[in-house]
């Protein structure tokens, strides 16, 4: 097998099974995300959405299957990927300024021994401007609100100028204004030709925010353009028992879905 395999697909997953304590939590996932889309991964709690992203990034080892990023194994494509973990996964009382955290996005690219210099600091300011946080560069991160923390995390991903962005629940626990700003920002990234993959929890907004949809519930339920995938049958298959919820959803979303 050659090194390059499916190079025209931003994220290609084949037969991926991931286990937690020897029990599979993701079953035989086949997934293709084309370049230049803004994709959502949705599914009920425990569907394995975060696990899927982590497995794609090589953070949890698969039991079976493999992943290609623009045709390359993940280890060789790290420079082309940026990852925004869930905000709660870190201690925000860590002694660092906003700019420090954004610069951390470059640590992998800089390689061993090199320290961020003037050029990197300028890039950090540019990334902060993109998320509207340039005035906060010297603030300690312990003084940020939840929405500001999220924007700093996104700036840390933007500074990497990656072709493929993975975000784990970036809209969780932020206010409506921040949510709109984040969505606009991510859409701008997509319009600039990048691929954006978001774990999303809010079915109400899926159709408005995204153009590609992956429905997951330990297996892939459906994947493709939102208009084709966002159907009642698929929602039923993915969300099973939560029929009442889907009922209200359909009435809310049918006009534009």
């Amino acid at each position: 097998m050659t090194d390059l395999h499916e190079p025209h697909i931003a994220c290609h997953v084949e037969d991926l099974t991931v286990s937690y304590r020897e029990r599979p939590v993701l079953w035989d996932i086949d997934l293709d995300i084309p370049p230049g889309v803004m994709a959502a991964i949705v599914g009920p709690n425990g569907a394995g959405k975060s696990t899927l992203i982590k497995a794609v990034l090589g953070l949890v080892p698969p039991v079976a299957g493999h992943v290609r990023i623009f045709g390359l194994p993940v280890a060789k494509a790290r420079r082309r990927i940026a990852y925004v973990p869930q905000r709660q996964s870190v201690d925000w009382d860590f002694p660092a300024t906003v700019r420090d955290v954004v610069l951390m996005g470059l640590y992998g690219q800089l390689g061993w021994l090199r320290r961020p210099g003037r050029a990197e600091k300028a890039r950090a300011m540019a990334a902060l401007e993109q998320v509207g946080m340039q005035d906060y560069a010297a603030r300690p991160i312990s003084q940020l609100s939840g929405g500001q923390q999220q924007r700093v995390f996104i700036a840390r991903a933007l500074i990497q100028e990656a072709d493929l962005l993975f975000l784990d629940e970036p809209m969780a626990g932020v206010d409506a204004v921040t949510e709109a700003a984040i969505v606009a920002l991510l859409k701008a990234q997509r319009d600039a030709g990048r691929t954006v993959v978001v774990v999303h929890h809010d079915l109400q907004t899926v159709a408005r925010y995204f153009d590609w949809l992956v429905m997951l519930n330990q297996r892939i339920i459906a994947q493709g353009p939102v208009a084709e995938v966002y159907t009642e049958a698929n929602l039923r298959a993915a969300y099973g028992g939560q029929l009442a919820l889907i009922g209200t959803l359909r009435t809310a979303e049918t006009p534009d879905a």
Binding site: D15, E22, P24, V63, A64
Partner: peptide, 20 residues
């Protein structure tokens, strides 16, 4: 136990793969 579960789950993965 882990070996048994692992073997069990790998067979299950194979079955799921073939079924899919």
């Amino acid at each position: 136990r882990r070996r048994a579960i692992r073997e069990e789950s790998l067979v299950a993965v194979l079955l799921a793969h073939l079924a899919a």
